[in-house]
Amino acid sequence: MGMISVRLHGVLNERVQQAGDRGRAGGELRLPFEGAVKVRDVLERLGVSDKDVHLVFVGRKRVKLDEELRDGDLLAVYPPMAGG
């Protein structure tokens, strides 16, 4: 079994109800998995719609939704966020 850490940022963090596991600044969720798992599988498991996702990073590398994940990966998921 492997483990992936996920940080949902901004409004995505608020929308996913994971009581006790959420914190400020995109509190880290830890998800165990077995076999091959892609970014989009993780999003589906968390109930996050693809269309609400703007950018995804594994560590500091920007990845697409089909990126296959490995044990120990830290996934950061961002909705669109606009400055001004």
């Binding site: 940022h9 901004g10 409004v11 600044a25 995109g26 703007h54 950018l55 990073f57 500091r60 920007r62 950061a76 961002y78 966020m81 606009a82 400055g83 001004g84």
Partner: peptide
């Protein structure tokens, strides 16, 4: 979060 949200994305 207002426009401040852009800081978290912008650093990436």
């Amino acid at each position: 979060m207002g426009t401040a949200a852009a800081m978290d994305l912008g650093v990436m």
